[in-house]
Design a binder for these strands. Structure first.
Lengths: 207, 207
DNA sequence: TAAAATTCACCCTTTTTGAGGGATTGAATT
DNA sequence: AATTCAATCCCTCAAAAAGGGTGAATTTTA
């Protein structure tokens, strides 16, 4: 088994060093290099290609969210872990959306850090259940939808880019019926085009 | 503080009863009623309106996934928890997508069950880090996209239902350029319409 | 330097869209 | 019993959009 190559992007020197010591003390991981900001890390990421990047969310210059996006662009196989003081914040959620697969709390102890990294390489995502809830709620549909179930069916197909004709074929109704539903959807959502309907539907989690 | 009202939908009588005993032994929860299948539960759900529904995934008749969907329709405020033997499966993931907010393993002990329910009422989602990974990977984009960044920009707008003209306006390019990009997208994705492009893009997490 | 990405133009035909109308049936609620 | 709502279907019309083909200039990047 090869040790997993890790880089650390963290502006606080003490933290950077304590993480390094802890990780280098393990038998599964080693720290390849550390960076005080995202810019310096991004300059080398393509050559270094680490297995794991630990990214602080609050960095001078480019913030952690943007850093994660760039890392995933330049080195897609690198798994990003958020390092944060705030256990449960929207910021962590943004980081996960940007491409991170989990996060580590700044004041975590040796065991917590190593076990989080362990979970990671075993294909898991270390995160609190609060964050997990935020994540899954993102693809739960809104139970207070103003639309009828048939209208929701139609809207889903609209969101897949289907035309009136295609929708009518998939739902075994006439094209005119599909158009009727769509007109009613427009009235209920207060929009007047497919694209507006899709935007509103996604924003309000109607589909 | 009122105790949280729970219903259990589980076909195995022994499990149903042991869950009931465990939960009724806690000071924060009580079992209002139990059901051996989804159909019977759904007949009463609108009147009972439990705070929490514990739903087995493998039920005779209607399965747990469908049951969860129906529960969320009829009683949106009821939080569904999956009860399953398989800790990490696509089935659990499907249940979460259907509207569940977490899951409990069938052979969990008293403490695990109560702490999972506790996490739930505190706004968390009890789940393993393996499941968490599956969940977040659902909104990570594919780093091996065949599309250029500009093409991806265009595709995102297509997925919002935008027309050639709207796309050109939003990206400050001419309509013909937008068409060019779209034609190239069609070739790269091997499709020949907007709807096909959207389907493929979503399936492959290109957007 | 060569390849890829980004930009734009003009040809063409067919389909779709959105805005107006209106109508019927059946189920659920009051 | 009355009424509302969902779901189904039909019509017209003009404007917009879509999709296919072909070619080419410019910039960026590997």
């Amino acid at each position: 088994m090869f040790k997993k190559k890790i880089i650390i992007i963290e502006d606080q020197e003490d933290l950077r060093e304590s993480f390094e010591v802890i990780i280098n003390g393990s038998d599964k991981f080693f720290v390849q290099s550390t960076y005080p900001n995202a810019e310096k890390a991004l300059r080398e990421i393509s050559k270094v290609r680490p297995d794991i990047a630990m990214v602080d969310l609050e960095l001078p210059g480019m913030n952690g969210i943007e850093a994660i996006k760039h890392i995933k662009e330049k080195s897609p196989k690198t798994e990003c872990v958020i390092v944060t003081v705030y256990e449960d914040s929207d910021l962590v959620f943004e980081g996960l959306k940007a491409g991170a697969v989990g996060y580590i709390i700044k004041n975590a102890n040796y065991l917590e850090i190593i076990s989080a990294l362990d979970e990671l390489v075993r294909g898991g995502s270390p995160m609190s259940s609060q964050i997990a809830r935020m994540v899954i709620q993102n693809f739960h549909i809104n139970p207070n939808s103003p639309l009828s179930s048939r209208e929701t069916d139609v809207l889903k197909l609209i969101a897949e880019g289907k035309s009136y004709t295609q929708i009518s074929e998939e739902l075994f109704i006439s094209k005119e019926t599909a158009r009727s539903h769509i007109k009613n959807i427009y009235v209920k959502l207060n929009v007047n085009s497919k694209s507006e309907a899709i935007s509103k539907a996604r924003k309000d989690h109607l589909i």
